[in-house]
Simulated assay, not measured.
Amino acid sequence: MIVKVSIYYFIYTFKTNTKGEAPIYCKIAVNGKQKRFSTGISILSKLWDATKQKGKGKNLIAEDIKKMKSSQ
């Protein structure tokens, strides 16, 4: 049996906080069944690269996201 797993990071721009930061969510799909959850990290929308699914630049949040993605 082949197991297909995909992991996708995205931000909810409609859930911005008072600082203008949007929460980063993770979506994991295993054989078509999906689970979404918050990472507990928020980022300014202008610092999020949706195509690369990571923070732009060299800031603490971008570095944290790189660590999360590399540990998978």
Score class of each variant (00 low, 15 high):
M1R: 08
M1T: 09
I2H: 01
I2Q: 12
I2A: 07
V3E: 14
V3K: 12
K4Q: 10
K4Y: 00
K4A: 13
K4L: 05
V5K: 11
V5E: 14
S6E: 06
S6P: 01
I7T: 15
I7E: 02
I7G: 02
I7S: 12
I7D: 03
I7R: 12
Y8P: 10
Y8A: 09
Y8C: 13
Y9H: 08
Y9V: 15
F10V: 12
F10H: 12
I11G: 04
I11N: 05
I11F: 03
Y12E: 14
Y12H: 12
Y12L: 06
Y12P: 02
T13E: 07
T13H: 00
T13D: 00
F14R: 09
K15E: 05
K15A: 11
T16E: 02
T16C: 01
T16Q: 03
N17Y: 02
T18L: 11
K19Q: 05
G20W: 06
G20M: 02
E21P: 06
E21Q: 09
A22Y: 04
A22V: 08
A22G: 07
P23I: 12
P23Q: 07
P23A: 06
P23H: 06
I24M: 05
I24L: 00
Y25A: 10
Y25P: 05
I28Q: 04
A29K: 11
V30S: 11
N31F: 00
N31R: 03
K33Q: 12
Q34C: 14
K35M: 12
K35I: 13
K35F: 11
R36S: 12
R36E: 11
F37S: 09
F37H: 09
S38T: 15
S38Q: 04
S38N: 08
T39W: 08
T39N: 04
G40N: 08
G40S: 12
I41H: 00
I41C: 01
S42E: 01
S42Y: 00
I43N: 03
I43Q: 02
I43T: 13
L44M: 09
L44N: 06
L44Y: 09
S45V: 13
S45M: 00
S45G: 05
K46I: 15
L47D: 07
L47Q: 05
L47G: 08
L47W: 09
W48R: 08
W48K: 04
W48S: 11
A50M: 10
A50L: 06
A50S: 07
A50Q: 04
A50W: 08
T51D: 15
T51K: 11
T51M: 10
K52P: 02
Q53I: 13
Q53Y: 04
Q53M: 14
Q53P: 14
Q53W: 04
K54G: 15
K54D: 13
K54C: 08
K54N: 15
G55Q: 09
K56H: 03
G57H: 00
G57V: 11
K58L: 14
K58S: 11
N59C: 03
L60A: 02
I61V: 13
I61G: 05
I61M: 01
A62C: 08
E63H: 06
E63L: 05
E63F: 01
E63N: 08
I65H: 01
K66M: 13
K66R: 07
K66H: 03
K67V: 13
K67G: 06
K67L: 10
M68Y: 10
M68I: 15
M68W: 01
K69P: 07
K69M: 15
K69I: 13
K69Y: 07
S70F: 05
S70W: 07
S70Q: 12
S70H: 03
S70L: 09
Q72E: 14
Q72K: 08
Q72H: 10
